[in-house]
Design a protein around this nucleic acid. Sequence first.
DNA 1: CTTCTTCATCGTTGTTTACCGATACGGTAC
DNA 2: GTACCGTATCGGTAAACAACGATGAAGAAG
Lengths: 114, 114
Amino acid sequence: MKKRRVAVLSCPPEDAAADLRPIEGSGADDELAALCKAVGHPVRVQILRLLARKNACICGDIVDELPLAQSTVSQHLKVLKESGLVRGDVDGPRVCYCIEPRTLRRFKALVGGL
Amino acid sequence: MKKRRVAVLSCPPEDAAADLRPIEGSGADDELAALCKAVGHPVRVQILRLLARKNACICGDIVDELPLAQSTVSQHLKVLKESGLVRGDVDGPRVCYCIEPRTLRRFKALVGGL
DNA sequence: CTTCTTCATCGTTGTTTACCGATACGGTAC
DNA sequence: GTACCGTATCGGTAAACAACGATGAAGAAG
């Protein structure tokens, strides 16, 4: 039983649009592979969907939604963060995660290019 | 120096169109994760691109294109085959690999749904 | 200050992956 | 039949991954 403040934070409005990066040649293979690898785990897909649903971002409420230890969820979030698909903004003691639309768009473009 | 017959085989015309499978709910998470996992390796992305370029399918010419042992390439092909993204049709002594458009479409749809 | 909360990080364990060489298997050719 | 070609599979090794509990660090609250 824990009372939990609802996270009302919205994500910073996104810095810029510019991301249609250089090519889609050889380096793009690695890029696509890395992104796919990050998404290549059911829990991480679930997290992404969670973050997308609450169009704003949530914090460790994610932990409550999943049947996993807090440390495990933290690890998955780290993977997603390192892939660039997710950003974590510190809000006092808690952290507000949200999807990084630029990277997600890039990901879709790369997959679409297959 | 090996003479290599060019593989002139084209892939069987695809059995049906019907694949817009049921939902995109919880089971879709696993499906997407599995597909991403299969694509989540640079070599496998490269293989997919190879198969896409030669719009028809090639055989173990793939091995020649990659700096990897034949057994390693075979493994990667197995992963892709098991994911459903690629099909391998036996042609006498050799095997003709090609992309399975249905699964690829499904993959794109799932990613697009993010 | 101390305490509590939220999250990240560390250390461990068991499982999976990626790669290789060697071997086995199924066809074709001889 | 034997020999050869193209692939798949087996066995092994080293690295990466997924999960956990325990510990640690940064803020808020008392």
